[in-house]
Design a protein around this nucleic acid. Structure first.
Lengths: 158, 158
DNA sequence: TATTGTTATACTCTATAACTATA
DNA sequence: TATAGTTATAGAGTATAACAATA
């Protein structure tokens, strides 16, 4: 278990091993910027992720999968967002067990503003030329694979 | 506040706006993979970040800065790592207020294994060709700027 | 029987404030 | 006075287990 990607010449291997670490570093920057953005809206990161995810009304269960946590946690997160007037719970018409979470008008406004903030503070924007950004865009697109419409930070459709 | 990077033609602007979202998506993948790796070692993410950061003995204060949290939190995190035999506290010889955190042998082993796991599961490794990886490496290196030797995921020196 | 959402519980992370021992 | 680390406290996230309503 020493070298998990070792079917490669040694020197080259070493250079490629840097990449996950660099990616980890960039990830830390993104995470840190995201936490700052959350704080400015007085949202915790899971709360902000929930708001970002709720482009459309969704069952609570769905949010648990997006947040990658147990369903029991969504109750509390939704409670706190609801208490602040950012989301509403309402019943689904086809299955009476299900409650749909939907952003209020205030919630939609907050969602839009967080997105702007994240975009404007992305480390990409600070340090790369236009040409480099285009290269990066293509590489990232390939890495994320076929983008899921339901992802926590969906492609812009607004 | 609608369009923070808008001194650019509309069509091109739209393409560049995708990048922070793509980067956010990749970040989610990295975060998710990191949490899985932590769980396999029965470490919380902050605990794992601490272990990764402690390549060399460091003051607790330093760790608070690396983890970007209040110093009071480091007490508990260090307590739990110490209780599991992964770190030790010992006094610094120049300043009697300071306690250095140092990985035990077990701690070093765990650190090495987490690093391997993260590397092997990085989304980079799954989806890019060698040539694309080299491009990505250069772009990431530029984004993180001059890499700090004390970063939470330092360049490999072992 | 299985699923959705809730509650109760316990643990960890987090910041704030107050404390100690050093500097 | 200022700094390093600790403690106490409170709010939030997290998983597990048990539960009610519904499928």
């Amino acid at each position: 278990m020493t070298s998990p990607v070792s079917d490669r010449p040694a020197a080259e291997d070493d250079r490629f091993h840097q990449i996950p670490q660099l990616l980890f570093g960039v990830t830390e920057q993104v995470r840190s910027a995201f936490e700052s953005a959350c704080a400015e809206f007085e949202l915790t990161p899971p709360q902000a992720r929930a708001v970002l995810a709720l482009e459309h009304p969704r069952p609570m269960r769905w949010l648990a999968e997006i947040l990658n946590c147990d369903a029991s946690n969504v109750t509390g997160i939704a409670d706190r967002l609801e208490a602040r007037g950012l989301v509403l719970r309402h019943p689904a018409d086809n299955d009476r067990r299900v409650k749909l979470l939907e952003l209020t008008r205030r919630g939609k406004t907050v969602r839009r503003r967080i997105r702007s903030l994240i975009e404007s503070r992305s480390p990409v924007m600070a340090s790369l030329t236009d040409e480099e950004r285009e290269s990066l865009r293509a590489l990232l697109a390939k890495m994320v694979g076929s983008p899921n419409e339901d992802a926590a930070f969906p492609r812009r459709a607004d």
